[in-house]
Design a protein around this nucleic acid. Structure first.
Lengths: 187, 187
DNA sequence: GCAAATACTTAAAGGCTGTAAGTTAACGAG
DNA sequence: CTCGTTAACTTACAGCCTTTAAGTATTTGC
C-alpha cells in the first residue's frame, strides 16, 4: 500500500493529458485512478466529484491558453498581433483537443473570473484597430466566434468534405477578419 | 404488458425533445425508456446502442435545420439571404439547444452525406456575392465558423460577462460578414 | 384458429459515481 | 524513539447506466 502522492494539481494535470488522449468527455474518475494505480475512491479526497475535476481541467487549460496567447502577442500590433494570437489559439486547440474542449464547459459557480485574461488580451489586439465601444465588444465577439467556430468545426471534421486546404482557408479568414476590423461597418 | 408501439423514429423524436430539455449529453437509453414507461432493454430492438440513438438525433436535427434554413432563404438574395439564413440558424440553436448540440458530433461511419443540404444552401447564399473558388469555400468556412462560434459561445454563456446586448452584437457581426463578403480580400 | 414474427420483460454482467468505514503509513511531539 | 494523530488509500456497498441473452406474451398473417 505504497502511497502515490496524489494532489489536486497532479490529478488535474493527469486529467488534462488524459483528455487530450481520449477526449474530454471520456475523462472519468475511474480512468484517472487507473492511471495512478489507485482505487477510484482515493480521488475523492482531493477532488469533490467528476464535475469539479473537469472544472479544474478547464481552468488549467484557460490559464495555459492565456499564457501561450500572451507570448504570441508580445511585441506585436495590428494584423501581426491578430494573426499571432489566432495561430496560438488554433495551435493550442489542435495540440490539446481535450484541454480545448474543457474550456467550453460552463464553469458557472466556480470561477467567473477565469475568462478574464483571455478577454483582456483580445481587447489588446483590437487596440490596433481603433474601435470604440460598443463596436469594440461587437468586434471582439465576432473575432472570438470566428476563432472558436473555425477551430471546433475543424476538430469535428466539418471541413473534411471539401478538398480545399484547411490551413489556407484559415489564413484567408484571418485576412478577412483583419479587413473587416480595419473597416468596421458603421451602425 | 401493453405494447407502446416503439419505433426508431418515435424514439429519435423523443430523444431530441429530451435533449432540448435536459441536454444532449444527458440523453440516455434509460431516461428515454422511462419516458415511454418501458424497460431500457426494450429500446435495443429499435436502436443499436446509445451512440446510434444520438446519431439519429443528429440526423434529425440536421434535417430540421436544413428545412428551416431553406424556408428562410426562399425568395431572398444577397445580404437579405445572409441575414435570414443566419437568424434561422441561430433561432434553431436557441430553441433547440439539445438538437443543435447533436449536430456537432462526428457522425463518421453513419452518413457522410448528412451535411450536404446544409453546404448547398450556404453556397446558395454566397451566390449573391460573386465569389469563385477557392474564395467561395474559404468564405463559406468563415461564415459557418462565425455562425457556429457565435451560437455556441452564446449558449455556453461566454458573452454574459459583458453588458453589451447580445442580439445587437449578432447583427453587427452579420453586417461585418456582409461587408467582408462583398469585398473579399484578394490573396 | 394457429404458427410465426414481433414487442417487450426479466435476468444478469460489467462499468462508473460517490459515500462511509476501515486500515495503515507518515509525521510531529514529548 | 515511540506514541498518538492525521492523512492517504482500500474495502465495501448502493445506485444508476449500458448491453446481451433468454423468456413471455401479443399481434399478425395465412
Amino acid at each position: 500500500m505504497a502511497r502515490v502522492g496524489l494532489t489536486a494539481e497532479r490529478l488535474t494535470r493527469a486529467a488534462a493529458d488524459l483528455a487530450d488522449e481520449i477526449g474530454f468527455q471520456n475523462v472519468t474518475v475511474s480512468a484517472l485512478a487507473r492511471g495512478f494505480d489507485v482505487k477510484p475512491a482515493a480521488l475523492y479526497s482531493h477532488v469533490k466529484d467528476v464535475r469539479d475535476l473537469r472544472a479544474r481541467v478547464a481552468l488549467l487549460a484557460l490559464a495555459e491558453l492565456a499564457d501561450r496567447a500572451a507570448a504570441a502577442l508580445a511585441g506585436r500590433a495590428g494584423k501581426d498581433a491578430l494573426v499571432a494570437f489566432a495561430n496560438a489559439y488554433r495551435g493550442y486547440a489542435k495540440e490539446h483537443p481535450g484541454r480545448y474542449a474543457a474550456t467550453q464547459i460552463e464553469l458557472d459557480s466556480v470561477d467567473t473570473s477565469a475568462g478574464r485574461p483571455h478577454a483582456d488580451m483580445t481587447r489588446a489586439i483590437l487596440r490596433g484597430y481603433a474601435l470604440s465601444e460598443p463596436d469594440q465588444t461587437d468586434a471582439l465577439r465576432m473575432m472570438h466566434s470566428t476563432f472558436h467556430g473555425y477551430v471546433s468545426l475543424e476538430a469535428a471534421g466539418g471541413f473534411r468534405r471539401h478538398p480545399r486546404d484547411v490551413d489556407a482557408s484559415w489564413f484567408r479568414a484571418l485576412d478577412a477578419l483583419d479587413a473587416v476590423l480595419r473597416n468596421w461597418p458603421p451602425a
